[in-house]
Design a protein around this nucleic acid. Sequence first.
DNA 1: CCGAGCGAGATTGGATGCAATCTGACTCAC
DNA 2: GTGAGTCAGATTGCATCCAATCTCGCTCGG
Lengths: 225, 225
Amino acid sequence: MTAQTGAERLDAVSGAVAQVVEELRAMLFARDLTPGSPVRQEALAARLGVSRAPVREALRVLASEGVLDHVRNVGYRVKVLTAAEFEQTYLMRRVLEAEVLRRLPPFPTPALQRLSAVNEQIAEASARGDLTAMARLNSDFHFRMFTASGLDLVVAELRRVWQLSDGYRAYLLHDPISQKRIVDEHAEMVEALRVRDHERLVSLMDHHRDGTRPQLEAVFTPPPA
Amino acid sequence: MTAQTGAERLDAVSGAVAQVVEELRAMLFARDLTPGSPVRQEALAARLGVSRAPVREALRVLASEGVLDHVRNVGYRVKVLTAAEFEQTYLMRRVLEAEVLRRLPPFPTPALQRLSAVNEQIAEASARGDLTAMARLNSDFHFRMFTASGLDLVVAELRRVWQLSDGYRAYLLHDPISQKRIVDEHAEMVEALRVRDHERLVSLMDHHRDGTRPQLEAVFTPPPA
DNA sequence: CCGAGCGAGATTGGATGCAATCTGACTCAC
DNA sequence: GTGAGTCAGATTGCATCCAATCTCGCTCGG
């Protein structure tokens, strides 16, 4: 049951703070907020129909995660990553994901099928040109694997690391050729999971991750003023 | 209750939220809060002379870091780590610290001396039996090295991981024999730094980290509920 | 004696109000 | 023309206020 593009009405979330956090993450995926964008408390509060109090808590959380920058008496804005910082997210992902993947228990067939289904959805989103859905589904694909490790704290850290670059993720998927490559490599990973070849899975993932680097450099090279 | 005499210009920390966060971290180091302790908003606010608003933001931050647990309409409490979770903090530290240490640039002599000085202070705190100071200085020693790597995002993640076990750190230092071992091993690390033997530094650190495991098991074994 | 039901007090979640601070445009002296 | 000074509007930081919810001891029927 995957409701495509239904992210605006998540009243299912218990608290207002969680709602605001989710909305902000969605806005990042959708490039509604891009690196450098200011985040106004009053505007966000109005948009979600809550007061500034929960908004402030949510912003503080995102800032502590490093997703937002905060300057006292000035406000929050989406953090702009330097190339060096982006490199560090790759470094952390490489070492933490390897540990997680090596510890994955055998995947039951239904779980493998669900994973493949997510990858299919990525292909469909790609066909529609829906970058936002792709970004979300791509995270979903990866974290379904990670979560299966049972290493909840490590997965939580990985989530934080991924979120640091959420604002950039759509740019990495921009190119149709990359999109196909991503889907194909995901399929290879599912196969490695099926035959329980963990080392192959790790090296596939390393290759997969490195494959997004060229797109990244394109993001960081054009600094006109 | 309103102290609007305007005398509060001495705030060392810029904001009330940061002040609350720091106080909470200090309370954890000092075992003023121990795993499982509830954290009452009103009490904390009164203790620091601020209102509940900044306290709530601070608590939300600590909860998002995993230091506190939060249950809606019930409150915050210091997170109790399971043995499995503790194991994960070791795992993350092992892989992230190795990456950081391998990238350390040469330490100038004054920096090495400062590092040694911190280790001396640990020894002095040990002699005084001041566990709180030991815990703080021990963090200081390690993060002085890490920070020198320049990998600020990785160091930030390491800080988060360390903070997860801050509430337990004093227990790990409880035993006088461990205290001496820690100081000695720190000295060995300084020496490895001096001669720029990174691989030796990494393996010393691995050994150092593993050395605290026995104390840990002692913490987790006696659950006579 | 014991468990379900109940209510007062404690506590949190969120809204609102206001002072402090920043920003950006405007003025004016040089 | 240019740069320092300043002033209004925008925005944040924090305090305060109220409603919603939970906790826990008490009562009461079985």
